[in-house]
Design a binder for these strands. Structure first.
Lengths: 153, 153
DNA sequence: GGAAATTCATTCGTATGCAAATGATATCAA
DNA sequence: TTGATATCATTTGCATACGAATGAATTTCC
């Protein structure tokens, strides 16, 4: 467990990491693929809402009325991005907008009754999506993975 | 430290997972954030090329000339998406296109001399990007994480 | 050999995602 | 108080990402 490893180390140390760069072994590439797979699983269960749209509704359910910018911060979305997401949810009657009294810059967002119904209805599906995404891992692996993934995010 | 906890457990066990759905603990959400962080690190090191563009060049370096579709498969990209990526690389003179003799459907893609120079020059930066993305983890954690992430992708 | 199915590439439409610029409003500080 | 800063939201431009439809060429299979 030690002699051979040390020998290898002595040899390899000569040329560190010259020509080999394998794209398919880089975190970024695999991270992108894992994300793709999740989005695909999401779409298979929840066809008429995207993950960002779902995130917005789910977070509004948690925190209630907030400003558009604040909501963006909570769901890790750029101001420009969150605007588009909220616009589409508004067009579908799932959220409603109002002006903040006292601060005329702020645009308040909240769930409509329909939006609240929708998110409550979708949450069980979201649990299943999480389950299916993590299905290749054992319970213990899931715990480990989530801990490490959280460190990276 | 124990009596109260046990009491709480006995109470909570009645309803398993009713109302609590925490977006910020779901794989999909954290996966998206981890991916965002990586793209940001990438942009900080390689400003004039996106991760998908880099992936296309890196893979062409590995496999040499291939069809556009085949390249898309190798770097996990939709036919429509890969077209846009290749178009932009071509506009910058990093790849060149040619017709496949024998199969008139296929569009062959290859690195130009300039493209080859670029990817060779960028690979050291890419190694640094990988390193920085994984910096929050120890060496042992990295090994574990990569193994589990690969299972999910 | 020829119809049916498959593959390759393109195009269109929609939805993130982010940088940068802009305008309106609020806050801070001299 | 007012001038500098900061915050909130919007807009524009560019780059993925993917479903669906289309057309051209190839392969399959009876």
């Amino acid at each position: 467990m030690s002699g051979e490893d040390n020998l290898l180390k002595l040899v390899e140390v000569e040329e560190p990491e010259e020509h080999d760069y394998l794209l398919q072994e880089q975190v970024g590439f695999i991270l992108r693929k894992a994300h793709q797979r999740h989005v695909s699983i999401f779409a298979a269960h929840i066809g008429d809402l995207t993950p960002p749209q779902f995130a917005a509704l789910a977070k509004l359910r948690d925190v209630g009325e907030t400003s558009q910018n604040q909501l963006g911060t909570l769901i890790a979305m750029d101001a420009a991005t969150v605007k588009g997401v909220i616009d589409r949810l508004k067009a579908r009657g799932l959220v409603e907008l109002s002006k903040h009294e006292g601060d005329k810059r702020r645009l308040l967002v909240n769930l409509t009754a329909e939006g609240r119904d929708a998110i409550e209805r979708l949450i069980p599906l979201a649990r299943e999506i999480t389950r299916e995404t993590l299905a290749p891992l054992s319970a213990k692996e899931i715990a480990t993975f989530m801990k490490l993934l959280a460190k990276l995010a």
